[in-house]
Simulated scan of single mutants.
Amino acid sequence: MFKKSILAAIILSFFLMLVPQAIFAAPSIVDQSALSKGIISIHYTSRPDTKVLVRISKENVKYDYTFEEGDQYPLQLGNGTYKVLVGESIGNNKYKVIAQEQIEVKLADEKTVFLQSIPLIDWSETSKAVVKAKKLTVNKKTDMDKLKAIYAYITTNFTYDYKKAQTVADTYIPDLDEVYEASQGICYDFAATFAAMARSEGLPTRLVMGYEANSPETYHAWNQVFLADRNEWVTIDTTYDATRVQGGQATDMFKNADEYQIVKVY
């Protein structure tokens, strides 16, 4: 439950002006050293206060990110051919291309990408939510037990921040340590924290954005988790469930996927 698509709505129009082909003969700024994990990095030094965007596309699907040195960008659309384009702002919503590259992705397991840290789910082993996840799951033997422990923690301890939902910027990305300390946030905060905790425990987890049937006009974020023993992705919505759980209302952890309309998957 937040105002707009976060990174997808950063760029209402991404106009790219082609520059001379010679620039593409320069050394690649696209780092593929972690390609086996389904992620890439960009190494580029821009002018101060200059906006740089990274566009990753496969067939007709495009994902746009605001560039930050050190970020890892996911190739989450399955195996195949991706195009990576890096553009530098020249003003008036126009960008010049500084690099473009085609990448072939052939992962042994396409779910690997949903275990990684990415800009929208920025975590490490020292992240507070991740440290908590390890404590919660230390004696848990199965993926289901781990999942239940993480789900129970968030739905019991996190509350929805209605004020933040009204004031959050379109470019907002959760700082997971801040969210954990506050134990409250918008749906994006809930879903990103849940994803970080679950991924850190080896559970392939998607952060999904789109719409839920009961609130079809409200842009929302939730999760999907792959359960190996069931060989399927299950839908989990900690935001709505936190309100139900804390209100003493019984609710199933797994939701009906048909009641959710997916727009973006990270």
Rank of each mutant, 00 (worst) to 15 (best):
Q184N: 15
A250H: 04
A198E: 03
K141S: 06
K51C: 04
I262G: 00
Q166S: 10
V105T: 06
D241A: 06
L18E: 14
Y162P: 04
I11E: 04
A34I: 08
L115Q: 09
I103E: 13
N157D: 14
T142Q: 06
V265K: 01
A108T: 13
K37Y: 15
D177P: 08
L207G: 03
D109G: 09
K255Q: 14
F114A: 05
K264H: 07
D161F: 06
H220Q: 05
N157S: 13
F114M: 10
A9S: 10
Y151C: 08
N93H: 05
I6S: 05
Y260F: 04
P216W: 01
T137K: 04
A22M: 02
G78P: 04
G80M: 06
M197H: 05
L176M: 09
I98A: 02
I10K: 09
P27Q: 01
G185K: 14
D122G: 03
D64E: 04
L7S: 02
P174S: 05
F254D: 01
N60F: 11
E232F: 07
K148H: 10
D64Q: 01
T238G: 06
A9V: 00
V52A: 09
R55I: 12
N60D: 07
S183C: 15
A8G: 07
D49K: 09
I150L: 13
V234N: 09
I56Q: 08
Q261R: 02
L227V: 13
I56W: 12
V105G: 04
F67S: 00
M209F: 00
V265N: 02
F15M: 08
V245Q: 11
I42W: 03
Y219A: 00
T171D: 02
V131H: 01
T142D: 05
E101P: 04
V179H: 11
S33N: 14
